[in-house]
């Protein structure tokens, strides 16, 4: 069980790290939002799933599952609200062609 938890958390950490690298490398707020959804919908979820496996059956497991569901419902709302605010205030994506 512990090994499964470790594997899940390491996968989650991979996506968290890639998301952070993307935050630094991508050019504008719109494309950076994509690396945000990478950390949210894969990084955080795999880490939480790993914690849930590690925790086993307990009250904390219920809590982790609630947070997991909330992450999936709330993060896209926040990302969308941020991006829509950027768009409405006049920001436009940079047209960056492939090198």
């Amino acid at each position: 069980m512990t090994w499964l938890a470790i594997v899940l958390i390491v996968i989650g950490l991979f996506f968290l790290i890639v998301g952070s690298i993307g935050m630094l490398r991508l050019p504008d707020v719109f494309s950076r939002a994509h690396s945000l959804s990478l950390t949210d919908s894969l990084g955080a979820v795999f880490v939480l799933a790993g914690l849930a496996v590690y925790e086993g059956f307990s009250f904390n497991l219920l809590r982790i599952l609630v947070v997991l569901v909330l992450v999936y419902f709330l993060n896209p709302v926040i990302a969308h609200a941020t991006i829509r605010a950027a768009y409405r205030s006049g920001l436009r994506p940079t047209k960056r062609e492939t090198k």
Partner: peptide, 9 residues
């Protein structure tokens, strides 16, 4: 929005 690579504006 949840799917990486696409985001609803």
């Amino acid at each position: 929005t949840l799917t990486p690579g696409t985001i609803t504006v």
